[in-house]
Design a protein around this nucleic acid. Structure first.
Length: 674
DNA sequence: TGTATCTTAAACATTA
DNA sequence: ATAATGTTTAAGATAC
């Protein structure tokens, strides 16, 4: 039908298309294509922009974009432009998670993962561990430096103390405090790990190369330190006197005191007891059965030492104690590990505080009483129900990424079971933009796109955004707010692991969307053509997409309910691991921040429509209870659908996607850059 | 139920 | 001639 040539056809085509599309696109197409005609305007010279460059500039660009969005379009300076049109050598996706820049999955990302349930537990674990590794590797380096300094200091002090008995006592006291703090941190970590492991959410696989701590846990034990340790522990029961030797351990104090004062006591007590075990001075403890020990001692479980990165197999509790004393005595390594853990905890707490704030702000904004619905998660039930049907499994993903914390929630998710974390966060979800809930099941909380970016970069999870949104994002991220088709492709593959396969499908979809939506304007260029975004047009569409429908919110809640209990623990764990880097990533990577803001803006517009009607959803109630089965469709799983590039979801566990969709590597995707 | 949106697939045209 | 790029059409699915 379309014989007209190139760009002109668009405007013409619109009319044609409208007629043909059977009314579906009437509204959209009608006015749209007109906009296209103006596309010929700016001829842009495209210089090969390094993606690296692009990324750096993205922040500025996005910011600029935000400011200029109303004006849109004209700002094309025509100076440089993204890329060449010619094909770029097929690059293949880098993408090993570990390889990437030290960015860690944010809590939101993890939640996203959880919600989508596309990844198998193993995959999640690997992800988690990799993220951990990244984080720890970075921190360890710094820590080691500091630690060495501190140790030197301590040694010096001891030497001096030798001359001055009084000071010696002081040193001992300090050591005690130090040890206690260390233990605190250990306890925190171990409890966390335990909680995870109990739920089967985190299983540290022996020999997991991703775990950076492993090497650290080996060999050490300066006898002197051990000696000192014994002295301190045995001689000191007066813990109250301590707690002030923070010269070396301020981190502990800060984190513990800052957010979880109550926690401190909780943690401390158990520690004290466990410590006793460590010192081998408590026969009573040793009389306990292995099971008891394994359960009670956070560092021991399932016959394995759970010291971070250790995993040494200990036949019985006795051997474990020996192992603990020998392998994890007070030495620089252990100390360093503790410090790392301290930082982790600190970061977590910081993050928690931030998230709390955010949550409050969100709830306030949404006029939702922060009733802190104490939804008893009942993870098992939910899980089972969720897995009953395909749609059910998808339901969980629907919930938006949310902060796993609640105002009342314990400060350290670490020690808490899933129940604690719970669904309270649901409210943070607030208005969710949900689309294709059942099949595609994507909550389009675009606000999360940025924060989840790292996740999507590495996980082959279908991003919960429409093609149009993604294309727009890609374009807006570009320095010139314009991209060639190929550059858009590249952006997709670069930003989303999911688009590194089935290229033919999604590329076609991209082209289709570019042509179909009037918000995308093709601009002729000397070298070819670039695509820009007509923000006005794009904005026009939003209201329609997102409607503030009570049922929607209800759905959101229900879906959230599904996922929350299911993944609470995981979320918590994820959050922890990611948090440290989360901060780093979000701050260090301009792209993320900008993306977030840009998309957030988009989201906000959409959200506004939904806020008013949540009346039917009882905020104070457990979302799960309130809306349990809503919208769960019992659809038989269709593998075909699952394999579709955009229909990722399917079942959480056995997504055909992961089972056999490994053909993407041969896809002629042109990833370049970087 | 009808309309709108989105995705996917595919045919076809144009261009490099 | 081929691949990339664009445009349309069509159909299925979901949301409103």
């Amino acid at each position: 039908m379309m014989q007209e040539s190139g760009t002109e056809t668009k405007s013409n085509g619109s009319a044609i298309q409208n007629g043909s599309s059977g009314g579906n696109h009437l509204l959209e197409c009608g006015s749209l294509r007109e906009g296209r005609s103006n596309g010929e305007a700016p001829a842009v010279d495209v210089g090969a922009a390094d993606l690296a460059h692009v990324q750096q500039q993205q922040a500025l660009q996005v910011a600029r974009q935000l400011l200029l969005q109303q004006q849109q379009q004209q700002q094309v300076s025509g100076l440089k432009s993204p890329k060449r049109n010619d094909k770029q050598p097929a690059l293949q996706v880098p993408v090993s998670v570990a390889m990437m820049t030290p960015q860690v999955i944010t809590p939101q990302q993890m939640q996203q993962i959880l919600q989508q349930q596309v990844l198998s537990p193993q995959q999640l674990q690997v992800l988690l561990q990799q993220q951990q590794a990244l984080m720890l590797q970075q921190q360890l380096q710094e820590f080691y430096k500091k630690q060495q300094e501190q140790l030197q200091l301590q040694l010096l002090q001891q030497q001096h103390a030798g001359k001055q008995p009084k000071e010696q006592q002081q040193v001992a006291t300090q050591q005690l405090a130090f040890q206690q703090q260390l233990l605190q941190m250990q306890q925190l970590q171990q409890q966390h790990l335990l909680s995870l492991q109990r739920q089967g959410l985190l299983t540290i696989q022996p020999g997991q190369p991703a775990l950076p701590l492993q090497p650290l846990a080996q060999g050490m034990i300066p006898a002197e330190l051990q000696q000192l340790w014994k002295e301190v522990t045995s001689a000191h029961t007066a813990e109250e006197t301590t707690g002030n030797n923070h010269s070396s351990l301020d981190l502990t104090t800060t984190c513990v005191s800052s957010s979880a004062p109550s926690k401190t006591s909780l943690i401390m007590n158990p520690h004290a007891s466990t410590n006793g075990q460590l010192s081998v001075h408590t026969p009573k403890r040793e009389s306990l059965s292995h099971e008891e020990h394994s359960h009670s001692h956070p560092l021991y479980g399932h016959g394995v030492c759970k010291w971070p990165g250790c995993e040494a197999v200990c036949e019985d509790f006795q051997s474990f104690l020996k192992h603990l004393n020998s392998e994890h005595a007070l030495d620089d390594r252990s100390t360093a590990q503790c410090r790392v853990q301290m930082q982790v905890v600190q970061q977590l707490e910081l993050q928690l505080a931030k998230d709390k704030e955010r949550l409050q702000a969100m709830m306030t904004h949404l006029h939702v009483k922060s009733t802190e619905p104490k939804a008893a998660p009942q993870p098992l039930n939910l899980v089972s129900s969720v897995t009953l049907s395909k749609s059910a499994s998808e339901a969980s993903p629907q919930s938006l990424p949310h902060t796993p914390t609640t105002p009342t929630a314990p400060i350290t998710p670490v020690t808490q079971g899933p129940s604690v974390i719970t669904t309270t966060s649901m409210h943070t979800v607030g208005p969710i933009r949900r689309r294709y809930s059942d099949k595609y099941n994507v909550p389009i909380s675009s606000a999360d796109i940025a924060q989840n970016q790292e996740f999507y970069k590495n996980a082959e999870v279908r991003p919960p955004f429409t093609y149009a949104s993604l294309i727009r994002q890609a374009i807006l991220e570009s320095p010139e707010k314009q991209l060639t088709l190929n550059e858009i492709y590249n952006w997709f593959t670069r930003m989303f692991a999911y688009f590194r396969r089935n290229a033919a499908t999604w590329k076609n979809a991209v082209r289709h969307n570019l042509s179909l939506h009037k918000c995308f304007v093709r601009v002729e260029n000397v070298k070819g053509a670039v695509w820009t975004v007509d923000e006005v047009e794009f904005q026009k569409r939003r209201p329609q997409k997102i409607s503030g429908n009570p049922s929607l919110i209800k759905n959101m809640q229900s879906s959230h309910a599904y996922c929350t209990p299911l993944n609470a623990a995981l979320q918590a764990s994820m959050a922890e691991n990611s948090i440290p880097l989360y901060t780093t990533a979000s701050m260090g990577n301009p792209t993320l921040g900008n993306l977030a803001s840009a998309i957030r803006e988009e989201l906000n517009g959409a959200m506004e429509h939904t806020n008013s009607n949540e009346s039917d959803s009882s905020p104070g109630r457990s979302p799960m209870q309130a809306v349990h089965p809503v919208h769960v469709k019992e659809e038989p799983l269709d593998p075909e659908e699952a394999e579709g590039p955009l229909s990722l979801v399917t079942t959480a566990n056995h997504s055909p996607d992961f089972d056999h969709d490994r053909d993407y590597e041969d896809e002629p995707v042109n990833e370049d850059m970087e």
